[in-house]
Amino acid sequence: MKPYGVVGFCCCCLIASGCTSLEGEDYGVFDPYETNNRRSYDVTDSVDRAVLVPVARGYRKVLPDWFERGLSKMFQNLRTVDSSVNGFLQGKPKSGGIDFARILINATIGVGGFFDVASRWDLPYQDEDLGQTLAVWGIKKSRYLYVPFFGPSTLRDLPSDVIRSWVPQMLFGGDIHWGVSVVDLVRARAGALAASDIRDASALDPYAFTRDAYFQRRRFLIYDGDPPLEDFFSDFGEEDFGEEDSSEQDEASEDASVEVTD
């Protein structure tokens, strides 16, 4: 994709996100396109199981753990530029500064990011992105999208996902970026094997499980690992612990909850 194509696509998503930002004020599950998303999930999951998972397992089997970790750290270091910028955009100069220092330290002393020297110096990766920035700026509730061959996202987070997947092309250019992108894809899938194994072992409806896990994880990141506890308890409501003969009001509130979450 050409640079102006990426910018244009992101602008369209941002405008659409802005238009839909008044649909809710929390970070709860919002899936008005569930029918299409489920189709997309089924197709993507079939391809994932047939192609990506075997390749990722092979990658994990062949490469020594230390090399695999180093490679993942190199790609993380490339994306720290994005994280640093978004730290500043969210009004968190300390966060942006830590990531900026990480880039300098890991790119030099850490041999291009292969060794995560910065973390040992108490400068942890801040893991910010454009989707989190937009959430901090007020786009909280956003429509869930299961993008074919790409995975879970929302209208708000999609520009960030596109930008991040475009990083190798931006940095390496020419034909080499395709090779780098493939390695990045396989590496990322290998890193997610443990999570997908848990999904396969636990989920009765893998689509709903993945969707809820995605929204929870994004909320966790938006709140920098410390989401408010009050929201967590109110999600489940007292009536769930109460006696059987709950009031009509309880039923109504639960109906509303099911409408949003299911």
Binding site: V29, S202, A203, L204, D205, A208, F209, R211, D212, A213, Q216, R217, R219, F220, L221, G225, P227, F232, D235, F236, T261, D262
Partner: peptide
């Protein structure tokens, strides 16, 4: 790490 077992169970 921010992912609630109960919330996943509930959605599922």
């Amino acid at each position: 790490d921010g992912v609630s077992d109960l919330s996943l169970r509930r959605a599922d």
